[in-house]
Write a protein that binds this DNA or RNA. Structure first.
Length: 151
DNA sequence: GCCAACGTTGGC
DNA sequence: GCCAACGTTGGC
């Protein structure tokens, strides 16, 4: 059973264009327990992911990618020079997980946060609920398809 | 750059 | 275990 997700990224840090260039990437730096649980337990190979640009001029969904490697320990947590270093994490029982994704496509037209907010079919997505900061958001197939339809 | 909302930390 | 202080997220 395939799952559907929305992953947030700040385009200044890593954008859909970077993923198009790289082909695949590891999704590092998730340091929130709820998002971690999704990455560790629920995000499966073959799942489809909407690539969302946050904290930028026009926030919204800019592309699609696909999970190619399921949850494994995020190596940046053990690297003292990395900005995501977590000295409390034990290598024998890592706290933080990552997945790998591959580029699928860029949307011809991005679907902006404003458009998502204005679509009643999308009102249950955690992206648009008050104060939600979760960076790994589960979607239903219907929500995923609806957003693609809007592009 | 501002600031509301939220998660985490740490003193007690 | 409570909760104030603090840091971060992310829209605007």
């Amino acid at each position: 059973m395939k799952n559907y997700w929305l992953f947030k990224s700040e385009p200044d840090v890593y954008s859909i264009d970077d993923l198009e260039r790289d082909g695949t990437t590891f999704w590092d730096g998730v340091r929130n327990y709820e998002a971690r649980n999704y990455l560790r337990d629920k995000v499966k190979k073959g799942d489809k992911v909407l690539f969302y640009h946050s904290n930028c001029e026009v926030p919204g969904v800019y592309g699609v990618c696909e999970v190619v490697k399921e949850g494994y320990p995020d190596f940046t947590q053990f690297d003292p020079k990395n900005k995501y270093y977590d000295p409390k994490s034990n290598p024998n029982n890592p706290t933080w997980f990552m997945v790998d994704v591959k580029f699928v496509k860029k949307l011809k037209k991005p679907v902006t946060l404003e458009e998502i907010k204005n679509n009643p079919k999308l009102k249950n997505i955690r992206l648009v609920q008050k104060g939600n900061r979760l960076s790994i958001i589960p979607l239903t197939k219907e929500e995923f398809d609806e957003i693609l339809k809007m592009s």
